[in-house]
Design a protein around this nucleic acid. Structure first.
Lengths: 317, 317
DNA sequence: ATTATTAACGAATAATTGCTTAGTCAGTGA
DNA sequence: TCACTGACTAAGCAATTATTCGTTAATAAT
């Protein structure tokens, strides 16, 4: 082409032509160049210009597309490191449907690593379901450690067996914490945590590479209460103090600020850090958990989120 | 990922995710693979699956897009080697607007070739305009030759000066034909064409690598008549014989079949071949030329077309 | 008129993508 | 049980695409 200078419009026209030939007609850049009588580099520049100038619109015709967009918006809005949004199944009331599979997938991904990693686990039915989904594998190089006690209020150890099951499923050393979730007093908690094995468990948990945690709602009838973690009196106190949700037993208010006193002064779980010292992935969905999830995000207690489409939609709004 | 076998739906979901990450979020395949926890090969397969399954829709937001589609449809419908459709300018009546620039561009493309080429030129205001648009350049390696005579009915040589101007613009040897467009008799035509220089001109034209030709309409008041190429009587005869259009003086009917007798027995232009022996690009637009263009395409007198959006729209319909 | 600045280009080079091969592993059915 | 199937990964080559760099032409600013 002669060196007659072209207007920007002409250049955009050319870009549009090149973009059409490339993206719509599936020519490669050599063919585009040949058909337009320009060098391949010029064709490449035009093609990339067409993309830069948003002449080319790409869209994905699949329900997943909406989930991906929601995930991206959540990632940006809350500065997350990772976010995955699954399709909501409106025909099911299962609170773990969908997100458990995703959480299991992400766990397996970590376990497939050659490098030994330490994975910490919190509470929640979703996590329990996720662990159930896991494919058995052989990962003696990894360690899985609980962030919360496994002693039920009655003293039995059957309570939080998720760590045991996980460890057995992937044949990795596992470290449950032989303490109650909430001690009867601050002093008792300190005594528990001062024990050698518990101390080393806590140290291991604090060195974790990744953590998966459930997010619990605190309202009239939370799982915390029905599972017997806390008493009705304790719940009333938390609600009075503004508690809206909890992660590994630590209750926080609407802003994500940890509640002072109440059960928080007796929680035996590993103390969370803000921001978390390791990638901490929250796994939760559902309208009843919405305020709790929002607060956990606002308080930056989690750096990743696995949720479903309807919950994500509410969160970005 | 575990070896739990996945349903086709799940696989499409994955393909959609991969496609979204790749095409919408502009990750490369390594990043897609990392984010989905799969190998790059799997990511590649999913991305290409998403494209194959038409999950990814690409569209071009630019007026040109429509022109490109029209060009493709014309290419397929008439088996063309090349086709270019420009935007119609509804505010202008200039019959050469747009297509002259495109024709000039395509000519320049040929001239930029290192290899010596022979370009043949037909008649038409569009071609004249195109040549005017050409940027001067230095191409002594090429040759430009006329397909039609340059003698006006009054014997002056000023008539078809397009070849002269072209040759001068690009500094290439040029070969006008010193004969009238239509001889007064078949015998006169034969005498003209038997002349040494004319014979070699014709031979040169027949060896051309590419030809640009106008397409003339034959109706009540064609340029052929107003320019004095033919008389009213001759025109009446052509119309009576079913002539609808012409290329380099050769009149044809609706099907593109060359008219027997009439002026065709006296045309001094280089005889066209069917299909053309070289890439022959028709340059024409406008409603009044529509039947002529259609006939030229039907008769396969041209292997390429340069036209505008509204003409192309009518041609594909 | 002459000199900076900008824009565009081709050539070379780097990065990415497409594709093939070989090997592994789990589920399947004889 | 055992070959068979299918899907995967790793490796690596070939093809394609993106970027960088030095040059040149056009444009703007002295």
């Amino acid at each position: 082409m002669a060196k007659r200078s072209k207007s920007g419009q002409d250049r955009l026209d050319d870009a549009a032509r090149a973009g059409w030939l490339y993206y719509v007609a599936h020519n490669n850049q050599d063919e585009v160049a040949e058909k337009m009588g320009i060098s391949r580099q010029s064709a490449q520049r035009l093609v990339s210009l067409a993309m830069r100038e948003r002449l080319i619109k790409v869209r994905l015709d699949h329900p997943i597309a909406h989930c991906m967009e929601l995930a991206q918006q959540l990632t940006e809005k809350y500065g997350l490191e990772s976010c995955e949004v699954t399709l909501s199944d409106p025909t099911s009331d299962d609170p773990a449907i969908g997100i458990a599979e995703v959480a299991a997938n992400q766990m397996e991904r970590y376990f497939k690593s050659k490098e030994p990693i330490v994975m910490a686990l919190g509470t929640g039915r979703e996590l329990r379901e996720a662990v159930k989904q896991l494919t058995p594998m052989n990962c003696p190089q990894h360690k899985v450690v609980s962030l919360v006690g496994n002693l039920a209020p009655d003293g039995s150890a059957s309570f939080n067996d998720v760590i045991m099951r996980l460890g057995e499923t992937i044949k990795a050393p596992h470290y449950p914490m032989a303490v109650p979730v909430v001690a009867t007093s601050s002093k008792e908690r300190d005594i528990f945590c001062a024990q050698k094995p518990i101390k080393s468990n806590i140290a291991l948990a604090k060195s974790a590479d990744v953590a998966f945690v459930g997010i619990g709602e605190i309202n009239e009838a939370p799982p915390m209460l029905t599972d017997g973690f806390i008493t009705q009196t304790e719940l009333d106190g938390l609600i009075a103090a503004g508690a809206i949700g909890e992660v590994v037993g630590w209750a926080f208010d609407n802003d994500g600020t940890i509640i002072k006193g109440e059960t928080n002064s007796r929680v035996a779980s590993v103390q969370l850090e803000q921001p978390p010292s390791c990638h901490t992935i929250g796994v939760a969905r559902g309208n009843n958990k919405l305020p709790a999830i929002q607060a956990a995000l606002a308080g930056r207690w989690i750096t990743g989120l696995i949720t479903d489409e309807s919950t994500a939609t509410a969160l970005v709004g």
